Computed example of a mutant assay.
Amino acid sequence: MAVFACAGCGAELTGPVTEVALPPHAHREGGNRYLPALMEPGTFAVDPEPSGPPWRPWHELGVDEAAARGVYAPIGGLWCGPGGAVLLAPGDTRDTVLIPEQCDGCCAAGGWPNLACERCGRTVGARIDDCYRWQAVWLRPEAVRRLPVPGPARPAGDGWTVTPLPPVEPDGWWSDRWSAAVAVALAEVLAASDGRPVAVPDGLLAETFGRTLDRLLPADGPARTLGLAGPGLTPDPAPDIALVPRHPWTGAAWQPADGTVPAALDAEVWTYLAFPPLRPTTRLPAGEERDDPLPLRPYRLFEPDRHLLVHRLARLPAVRQPWLRAIYDRLGDGRQD
Score class of each variant (00 low, 15 high):
His307Cys: 04
Gly221Ala: 11
Arg330Cys: 00
Ala219Ser: 15
Pro170Leu: 10
Val149His: 09
Glu29Gln: 10
Gly332Thr: 04
Leu190Lys: 07
Ala66Gly: 08
Ala223Pro: 07
Val269Phe: 11
Ala5His: 04
Arg127Phe: 15
Leu22Gln: 00
Asp64Tyr: 00
Arg312Phe: 08
Pro235Glu: 08
Leu78Glu: 12
Pro276Arg: 11
Ala136Leu: 13
Glu188Pro: 00
Glu169Val: 04
His25Asn: 10
Pro57Arg: 14
His307Gln: 12
Trp173Ser: 12
Ala187Val: 13
Leu273Val: 07
Val198Cys: 10
Ser179Phe: 09
Cys131Thr: 06
Pro170Asp: 03
Leu88Asp: 06
Trp178Gly: 06
Ala85Trp: 14
Gly42Val: 07
Gly76Asn: 11
Arg119Thr: 14
Val168Met: 08
Pro262Ser: 02
Leu309Phe: 14
Pro239Ile: 13
Ala183His: 06
Trp173Lys: 04
Pro82Tyr: 02
Pro164Ser: 02
Gly30Ser: 09
Ile327Asn: 08
Cys131Met: 07
Ala85Tyr: 08
Ala199Tyr: 03
Arg211Ile: 01
Ala11Phe: 00
Pro170Gly: 05
Ala66Leu: 02
Arg33Leu: 08
Ser51Asn: 03
Ala108His: 13
Cys106Trp: 15
Glu188Asn: 05
Arg122Phe: 00
Asp176Ala: 06
Leu309Met: 13
Gly121Ser: 07
Tyr34Met: 08
Pro16Ala: 15
His247Cys: 05
Leu313Gln: 06
Leu233Phe: 10
Val200Gly: 06
Leu190Thr: 06
Tyr72Ile: 01
Arg211Lys: 04
Asp333Trp: 12
Ala267Asp: 07
Ala187Trp: 01
Arg279Tyr: 07
Leu88His: 05
Arg283Lys: 00
Glu19Tyr: 00
Leu213Asp: 04
Thr43Ala: 11
Thr163Cys: 01
Pro90Val: 09
Pro74His: 11
Pro322Ser: 03
Ile327Lys: 08
Pro277Phe: 11
Glu60Leu: 14
Trp174Val: 01
Leu284Pro: 07
Glu207His: 05
Pro256Phe: 11
Tyr328Val: 00
Ala21Thr: 08
Arg283His: 03
Glu29Ile: 04
His307Trp: 13
Trp134Tyr: 15
Arg312Pro: 05
Ala191Arg: 05
Leu273Lys: 12
Leu294Glu: 08
Pro150Asp: 15
Pro164Cys: 03
Leu316Glu: 00
Pro141Val: 14
Ala37Met: 01
Pro262Glu: 03
Gly203Pro: 07
Leu13Gly: 00
Ala180Pro: 11
Leu78Ala: 12
Val200Glu: 03
Ala257Cys: 03
Tyr72Ser: 01
Leu301Gln: 14
Gly52Ala: 07
Thr271Glu: 15
Trp112Thr: 10
Ala286Gln: 02
Thr282Leu: 10
Val244Asp: 08
Val261Ala: 15
Ile241Arg: 06
Ala264Gly: 14
Gly10Ile: 01
